[in-house]
Amino acid sequence: MWNGGCLSEIPIINDVLTEVQRVWDTQLLSLRTLEHLYMFTIALFVSILIGIAVGVLIYRSPKLADPVLNGLNVVETIPDVALLVLLLPIFGIGAGPTVAASILYSILPITRNTYTGLANVPREYVEIAEALGLNPGEVLMRVRFPLALPLIAGGIRIAVVFTMGVVTLGGLIAAGGLGAALQNGIQLYDMGTILVTGAWVGLLAVILDGGAGVIENRLKVRYGTWS
């Protein structure tokens, strides 16, 4: 039988577990993780709201599409550290600029995918909806939007990874979260802290991305247009 007792009898694993335990306790990783997920959730939620709203807006006013997408692309090209620093005068230090930077980064993939998804719904479905007597708003909400959901979910999945990265970087400007623990590790040159926290952040990112992937695939099955 596999159990913790068995594992901890192997010396190297025992060492690793002890180290993880030490870092977890001294760096308050439970608290840091909560802070981290708190910033992540707020940032992602707001990005989704703004991203989809802007996507729908530029779909309905195609003249705006190019300038808006180009503008967001410019934001995307600013290195994330530079963006954080640029936001300092506006938001001060801490969680504010971190969340703001995450949002600015994450809007583009969500907006772009929303716009592309709405615009590329197969013509025949839109035509039949119009022929049945749906008005333009109803075509958007009842046909285009549901059929665009898999692509929108794909955009959100990219945003999940972006947000995770920027929130971690927030440790640089005293935002708390797991980035703070990483900073501590770097300042003290404590390799154990760096490795354990780094691995934990990586694992969290993989789990969140995997969860988003599962949702994306479900939506593809439900709303995919190939069938």
């Binding site: 025949e124 479905y125 035509e127 039949i128 909806a129 119009e130 022929a131 049945l132 007597g133 749906l134 008005n135 009842r142 046909v143 549901p146 059929l147 439900r222 709303y223 995919g224 247009t225 069938s227």
Partner: peptide
């Protein structure tokens, strides 16, 4: 046009059904 089309039934070849709605969703849409 919306009222006109709701007063007229329309059937097309092939892919007339909306893939994200089930049978009663399609029939009951309007």
């Amino acid at each position: 046009p919306v009222r006109l089309r709701r007063s007229i039934g329309y059937v097309i070849q092939n892919i007339g059904l909306l893939p994200h709605l089930n049978v009663s969703g399609n029939i009951g849409l309007i």
